[in-house]
């Protein structure tokens, strides 16, 4: 069950790479947050109450509800209904994503010969998700998609940190939570600002500053 959740988490990325609709991206972020939440309920049920509460807050509150809601609000308020064009055809995007999955699974498979490796499925999928988030940032033109790519990278690192059984102290976790929240919030505000200044939300507009 645990593995199924993790692989489903990976599949959301596959779906994102194949579609070009912003609503789908947001839905996938929501699904990712829910999957991480379920994963926590499955694996962390014997953790301390404060830690568990914090993790639930982070997955369900932040990743599943707050961020998708905020991104949707930004999309609505900025009238970004057009598709998120990619700079390469979706077919290649899917192929690349699949290759990244294969590569990450190979890395995870190879890492089993090292001491102290995390569980291979966690490790492989989280590498794949992080790399795919970067791929989305690299290949999509819309600024808002870059924010989503950033969230995907964050989700991937969160999965990786779940794989490492070690817990950070509570204060550090709180700080991390706050940082990510403020980062997304600021990025969202800036999307609105950029929209009102440039009247276009394309990353190609941001090329005035150069040498």
């Amino acid at each position: 069950m645990e593995y199924a959740l993790i692989v489903l988490f990976g599949l959301t990325i596959l779906y994102i790479s194949a579609t070009s609709r912003l609503e789908v991206y947001i839905n996938c972020l929501f699904i990712q947050g829910m999957l991480l939440f379920l994963l926590i309920l499955l694996t962390m049920h014997d953790a301390d109450i404060p830690v568990l509460l914090l993790l639930i807050l982070e997955t369900l509150g932040l990743k599943a509800i707050l961020v998708p809601w905020f991104l949707r609000y930004i999309i609505r308020s900025n009238h970004i209904y057009r598709e998120a064009e990619a700079s390469l055809p979706h077919f290649y995007s899917v192929v690349l994503t699949t290759m990244i999955f294969i590569f990450s699974f190979f890395v995870a498979w190879w890492s089993t010969r090292l001491p102290d490796t995390p569980e291979t499925v966690y490790f492989g999928v989280s590498i794949a998700v992080v790399l795919n988030g970067l791929l989305i940032i690299l290949t999509r033109h819309k600024i808002i998609t870059h924010v989503m790519g950033f969230m995907i990278v964050e989700n991937g690192t969160f999965l990786l940190s779940l794989a490492v059984a070690r817990e950070m102290p509570l204060i550090v976790n709180l700080g991390i939570l706050l940082d990510i929240f403020v980062a997304v919030f600021l990025l969202g505000i800036m999307v609105t600002r950029i929209r009102s200044t440039f009247e276009e939300l394309d990353i190609d507009m941001l090329t005035t500053l150069k040498d």
């Binding site: 600024i143 950033f150 941001l206 090329t207």
Partner: peptide, 15 residues
């Protein structure tokens, strides 16, 4: 400053 250039710089910086 809310100029085009400052927005661009801020976006690059934070991102």
């Amino acid at each position: 400053e809310k100029k085009r250039t400052s927005l661009e710089a801020a976006w690059k910086y934070i991102f």
